[in-house]
Design a protein around this nucleic acid. Structure first.
Lengths: 282, 282
DNA sequence: GAGTGGATTTCGCAT
DNA sequence: ATGCGAAGTCCACTC
């Protein structure tokens, strides 16, 4: 699978042909190459990029970035992914985040000289470039990935909002929503409604532990609405739970709290009647 | 390179031995496998995880996440990276961000049944898990990456601050810094000093285009200092450039602007005398 | 261990 | 295009 020695330019395409023929790849056109020479790698990368394929490069490299900031990454072994949408990821062997990257939409340029392969990814707006220099390559893979699978994230803040709009009882008995995403002075009120006693209610939703900031935000909204309607206005903070110390702050600000598990909201939204909501509020 | 048929448990380790022997991997222990069966993949992944190696899996999979939120990703071809620090990335063929992931520190569990390989990554605090199910695997790679390369990011906001403290002339002729990160009412003043005429100066630094918010923030600081010292106070906004419309706002607020390229700051900080600054201000 | 702020944040949505 | 808010944000630093 790995080439022992570099070959002349004439035989390279033949090599690739053989390579492809030898491998019974499933449906796509997935090709891999281990321990290529720099020249072989250059050819491989150039082909992959021109054919708009996804590319995995594992090797020893150094990286320079110039753009919104500038950075320099010294020599080391990393995993690089170049996707066919023109995004780039440089991953060190540790950490969730890429050390260098480029968002989708890059144009690529490759060069090789003195046994070093350079891959340059450039984008405009903002103008920035990542240059990767390889002197050893362990693994190359060119991939045509097909992915039409749907991705669903449950119980986001938006889902919690919709759950309350659809089933206001989960917030509080007798609550009736009026509007949502209502624009007021400081921003957007998540839900605005009336409680069982006819008092105005402002609802602020957090999908995770709510803290100081959420409480203060809600207080601002309550004040803004209060100034508009010139009546008493209640504020209810909705979240799975409160951060330490937030309860006392809520008391000081005279705001209420309603614990609500995001999963409960997912359940509500999974009910078939949910579609009615879409008709109403969509 | 790829196995034609699954083999009995007895011969598996032998297969891996051969595989390793056949490949003259550079320094590390990089191993790759193309189009393995699910059983072969299970063995390979189990080994890689138990040996604390980094792992690349390219294949058709579906993914479930349960934790702070919950998500479901339907079947499709993706690139998965599992690093030896216990972080996980699931990358679709497009987009900069992983569709699913797990930060460092996960524990792993693998199972295979009915020609499906399951890899489960669990972490505590917060308690969450990602489960990946593979029914076709195109590429597997087990890697021992060595990366001691230093990463340097130039011209962060802090660097710009230090550059001005070290070489105040780059801000303005005759400027003398007094303190930095000075605590005042609304937050922290980046730099506080005196200009060539003896007037007090508040400096607000932005490492990128400064806009409305930066100007207003600076104005707050100026007012706060003014109230304290009961004297005239100048405000200077330092940034590579201004957002559209910010110049007029600055004029209205009677604030000054100084364009300063982050790269220029990097240059100043790269001077050997910079270390003196660390002694003074560190 | 929890809280706070920054990021080459990215991403999405509304203006 | 631009600007603002949210994110399973992550991460580093402080208390």
């Amino acid at each position: 699978m790995s080439y022992g020695k570099p070959c002349s330019r004439a035989c390279r395409s033949t090599h690739l042909e053989k390579l492809r023929a030898r491998n019974n790849f499933h449906r796509g056109f997935h090709v891999a190459l281990e321990n290529p020479t720099v020249k072989e790698a250059a050819e491989f990368v150039r082909n992959a990029l021109s054919e708009r394929k996804a590319l995995i490069i594992v090797g020893n490299c150094w990286v320079e970035y110039q753009g919104r900031a500038s950075s320099k990454l010294e020599s080391g072994e990393r995993i690089i992914i170049i996707k066919d949408d023109g995004s780039v990821l440089v991953h060190r062997p540790a950490g969730y985040e890429p050390v260098n990257w480029q968002p989708p939409g890059c144009l690529f340029q490759t060069r090789s000289a003195d046994n070093v392969l350079e891959v340059k990814a450039v984008r405009r707006k903002p103008s920035e470039s990542v240059r990767m220099f390889f002197d050893r390559i362990y693994l190359l893979s060119s991939l045509s990935l097909v992915d039409r699978g749907k991705f669903s994230l449950y119980a986001s803040e938006e889902d919690m909002q919709r759950a309350i709009l659809f089933e206001p009882e989960i917030l509080e008995h007798g609550f009736k929503p009026i509007t949502y995403e209502k624009k007021v002075e400081p921003g957007f009120v998540d839900i605005y409604g009336i409680d069982k006693d006819g008092k105005f209610v402002v609802v602020e939703i957090k999908r995770k532990t709510a803290g100081r900031q959420a409480a203060l935000q809600l207080a601002k909204y309550v004040d803004a609405i209060k100034a508009m309607v010139n009546r008493e206005v209640r504020g209810i903070l909705v979240a799975p739970r409160l951060a330490k110390g937030t309860q006392r702050l809520l008391a000081t600000l005279k705001l209420d709290f309603k614990a609500l598990d995001p999963r409960r909201c997912s359940e509500v939204l999974s009910m078939p009647e949910t579609k009615k909501l879409e008709e109403f509020f969509g």
